[in-house]
Every structure is written in C-alpha cells, then in structure tokens.
C-alpha cells in the first residue's frame, strides 16, 4: 500500500451548510459533485456540530478545507467556531451573486459557479495542481 494512501494530504475537506434554501442545497450539490469528480471529499458538518471527536479532530487536523455557507447567516462558520476548528477557505454563496430563495430546482449554471468558486478558493485545484483523484469510494476509509 502506498505510503500516502490514507493521508489526508491533497484531499480537500468540503463542508457544506446544506441548509433549507436554494443556496444551502447548492452548497451541498457542489460538494457532492466535487467529491465525485475527485477534487475533494465532502465531510459531515453535522458530526462537527454534534461535537463528535472524530469529526471535530478531523476538521482541525486536515490541511485543506473549504467551508461553504449558503448565506450570510453563516451557520457553517458558527459551527466551526463553536467546535474550535480553524476556518480556512470560506465561501458565502450569496456573495457570488446568487439570490437566496426557496426554489429547490437548482440551476446548472449556479452549481457550476459554486464549483468554480470552490476550486478557485484553494488556488485552482486540490493538492496545488491536481485533483486528489480519490473519490469517496476510492479512498482507504470512507468516513
């Protein structure tokens, strides 16, 4: 097994608010697609919010993280602060010009806009140049 097989290096942790609005669900959809594309790996914000040690410590120790809030209420940011997890890359989707509403028929263009913003926030791509290549099904531990 390769030495870096299970390391978190190069695997961007993606935390999405997944809240009850279009922007909340956009954050989740983008996180899912970026995970499927091997850019990073969606992680359980609920576990961090529940102060479960595995989730909290993972968020503290991961080298690269993008936190995505749908709107300026900032629930993801608040959860991370409450769990004493340092905020790294951070996006608010309404700041991208996406209006918050209750229309859950997500526009493809908005999903792509969010994905592009997430990638840009990490300097273009994961691991300084290349996607991690490890999808959720391909990593050593599907946590």
């Amino acid at each position: 097994m390769a030495e870096d097989c299970c390391a978190t290096n190069g695997n961007v942790m993606i935390l999405a608010c997944a809240g009850g609005s279009n922007v909340g669900q956009l954050s989740n959809q983008a996180a899912v697609e970026l995970t499927q594309e091997g850019f990073g790996k969606i992680f359980c914000l609920a576990g961090v919010g529940g102060h479960l040690s595995g989730f909290v410590q993972s968020a503290r120790d991961v080298p690269q993280m993008v936190a995505i809030d749908g709107c300026s209420v900032g629930c993801v940011k608040a959860i991370l602060e409450h769990a004493e997890v340092p905020l790294k890359q951070y996006l608010v989707l309404t700041d991208l010009g996406i209006e918050k509403n209750k229309n859950f028929n997500l526009a493809r263009a908005d999903v792509e806009k969010v994905k592009t913003a997430v990638k840009a926030s990490t300097g273009g791509s994961a691991a300084n140049g290349q996607p991690s290549g490890k999808t959720s099904s391909g990593s050593c531990c599907n946590c």
Binding site: C6, K41, C44, F55, Q57, S139, N142, C143
Partner: peptide, 14 residues
C-alpha cells in the same frame, strides 16, 4: 475499514 469509519475520521492514521 468499516470499523475505522465508525469513528468518523476523515483519514488515517488516527
């Protein structure tokens, strides 16, 4: 792997 996953960790070693 499944036992590891029960701990909710993002990666290993943990």
């Amino acid at each position: 792997t499944m036992e590891i996953a029960k701990h909710g960790v993002f990666g290993t070693p943990a």
